[in-house]
């Protein structure tokens, strides 16, 4: 029974981390182009994503 006192918070905490990661990935635009992401993995070239600085600046201006 005493095991519950830390097991349940640990379980809920893991769930909460999952939720936070999902919301973060959503915010950072990782679901904007799912079809493109599926195709890009096959491209040989070095696919340099938009650098963080650049995209952050861009996104701020969009809003």
């Amino acid at each position: 029974m005493t095991g519950f006192y830390y097991l349940i918070p640990v379980a809920l905490g893991m769930g909460a981390v999952g939720l936070a990661v999902f919301l973060w990935s959503l915010r950072s635009g990782q679901y904007e182009d799912l079809d493109g992401a599926a195709e890009r993995i096959l491209l040989d070239e070095d696919d340099v994503p938009v650098t963080d600085k650049q995209s952050a600046a861009g996104r701020k201006d969009v809003r």
Binding site: E32, D33, L34, D35, G36, E39, R40, L43, E45, V50, Q54
Partner: peptide
């Protein structure tokens, strides 16, 4: 298509960055 388009646009003078969104 992604590759062709990004390559064709990337070499134009003045173009900083070109990114295709295939879904849209």
């Amino acid at each position: 298509c992604i590759q062709t388009i990004e390559r064709a646009l990337g070499v134009l003078p003045g173009v900083e960055h070109a990114r295709v969104n295939l879904s849209t």
